[in-house]
Simulated scan of single mutants.
Amino acid sequence: MKRIALGLATALTAIGMTAGLAFAAEPAMMTKTAKGNIYTDAQGMTLYTFDKDKAGTSACYEECATSWPALKADAGAKTDGKWTIVDRTDGTKMWAYDGKPLYTYAKDKKAGDMNGEGMGGVWHMAKAS
Rank of each mutant, 00 (worst) to 15 (best):
T92R: 01
V86L: 00
M30K: 15
A28F: 03
A75P: 09
K93R: 09
K93V: 07
D41N: 11
K35H: 04
E62K: 11
G91W: 00
D51N: 14
A59R: 04
K100A: 12
T84H: 08
K100Y: 01
T84I: 05
F50A: 05
G99F: 00
L102F: 11
L102Y: 04
K54W: 00
G56W: 00
G76T: 12
F23Y: 13
A70V: 15
M94K: 01
F23M: 11
A59V: 02
E63R: 10
Y39K: 03
V86K: 03
K35V: 01
K93I: 05
S58G: 08
D51A: 15
T57Q: 15
P101K: 04
A96V: 08
D41L: 07
S58D: 07
V86C: 07
A34S: 09
F50W: 03
F50H: 02
T57N: 12
T79Q: 12
A73Q: 05
W68K: 02
T57C: 05
T66S: 10
K32C: 04
L71G: 02
Y103S: 07
K93M: 07
D74M: 06
T33I: 09
M94I: 05
T84E: 08
A96Y: 05
P27R: 00
K100G: 08
T40N: 04
W83F: 12
C64I: 02
P69F: 05
L102Q: 05
Y61D: 07
F23V: 09
I85K: 00
E63N: 14
G76M: 03
W95D: 04
K78G: 09
K78R: 09
A34T: 13
K52L: 13
A65H: 03
F50G: 03
A25R: 13
G56A: 07
F23N: 13
D90N: 13
W83H: 07
A65V: 15
T33K: 12
D80P: 11
A25F: 04
A25C: 06
D98L: 10
F50C: 09
E63L: 09
A73T: 07
T66P: 09
P27V: 10
R88S: 05
F50E: 04
Y48M: 08
I38F: 02
V86S: 01
R88D: 03
Y103P: 08
G36Q: 06
K32T: 13
S58H: 03
L47E: 06
M94Y: 01
T33N: 09
A73D: 01
K52E: 12
Y105H: 03
E62R: 03
A65F: 02
L47Y: 05
Y105T: 06
Q43N: 15
